[in-house]
Simulated assay, not measured.
Amino acid sequence: MEKIAFLGLGRMGLPMARRLAAAGHPLTVWNRSPGRADGLAEAATAAEAVRGADVVVTMLSDPAAVAEVAGAIAARLAPGTLWIDMSSIGPAATAGLRERLPDGVGLVDAPVLGSVGPAATGDLVVYAGGEDADLDRARPVLEHLGRVRRCGGPGSGAALKVVVIGAIVASVAVVGEVLAVAEELGLSQELAREALTAGPLAGVVARAHSADSDFPVRLAAKDLALAGGGPVLSAAREVLLADPSIAERDLSAVVGSLRRR
């Protein structure tokens, strides 16, 4: 099995790395803050982690973090190495990353949809974009982590993630606001939720009240920023940023925040 370097052991990265190790891949991990490896073989630096790796997987927080790691490791990647970036950084940053890679190094953009629970059980949705040969090679690795949706050429996985997460995050903010309106109009929350759940917003209502998801509001706001400056998504982002007290809480916290305003 191919030797993997996994960089980024945050909320999502650590359970994903554990799954790859459990599948039998020789695995070396690295995290900016050391001591999170939880028994996995940990390198002291990102450059050390990728030494001799066939596949590099990154699961980092934002475009700046990916760019920083690229600066540390890109020149050290040998021809034939495949980089699978599973961070949510958008298509523009993905294109910039591709430009920094040495000749002969492949790149698959493969951001995921799902939270910590699905990351641990291998039930993520993986949006994969890249050259056909790179996608074929990445698939056996990605299938340990979730259901792979092959999106097309380079950047298409990153682009689809922006589209889907933008719709989800903005819709959760809308549900939070209309529930606040219901309260102002004297309706019970139970009645309003029941009516919304009976219609096409059922899935969004469930996500807005999820008790087992872990998608911090600050990262949701970051993902909306990646979608650009459209009026609806920009307004939803302002809603998320208006209450700094919920920045590290799950997206569902925006519902209670809106009711308090």
Rank of each mutant, 00 (worst) to 15 (best):
M1T: 08
A5K: 06
F6T: 11
F6D: 07
G8A: 11
M12G: 10
G13V: 13
G13I: 13
P15R: 05
M16F: 03
M16L: 13
A17R: 05
R18P: 00
R18K: 13
L20Q: 07
A23Y: 02
H25W: 07
P26H: 02
L27C: 00
W30G: 03
N31Y: 06
S33D: 01
G35Y: 07
A37Y: 07
G39V: 07
E42V: 12
E42N: 09
A44P: 02
V50R: 10
R51M: 11
A53F: 02
V56L: 13
T58A: 13
M59Q: 10
S61T: 13
V66P: 07
A70D: 12
A70K: 08
G71Q: 10
A72M: 10
I73F: 06
R76N: 11
A78W: 02
P79G: 06
G80T: 09
S88P: 02
I89C: 11
G90Y: 02
T94S: 15
A95E: 14
L97R: 06
D103S: 14
V105H: 07
G106S: 05
G106L: 09
L113D: 03
L113F: 10
A119N: 04
A120Q: 12
T121I: 01
D123I: 00
V125P: 00
D132A: 14
D136S: 10
D136R: 11
R137N: 05
V141D: 00
L142Q: 07
E143A: 12
R147E: 09
C151S: 00
G152T: 05
G153P: 06
P154A: 08
S156R: 09
K161A: 00
K161T: 01
V164G: 00
I165E: 12
I165H: 11
I165K: 04
G166M: 01
G166L: 01
V172C: 04
A173T: 14
V174L: 15
V175L: 07
V178I: 15
V178A: 15
L179H: 09
A182H: 13
E183M: 07
E184I: 00
E184Q: 14
L191N: 09
A192R: 08
A195P: 03
A195I: 15
A198M: 02
A198G: 15
G203D: 01
S210M: 04
A227E: 01
A227S: 14
P231H: 10
S234Y: 01
A235T: 10
A235S: 13
A236K: 04
A236C: 04
E238A: 15
V239Y: 01
V239P: 01
L240A: 08
D243Y: 12
S245L: 13
S252Y: 03
V255M: 01
G256L: 12
G256Q: 08
R260G: 04
R261P: 07
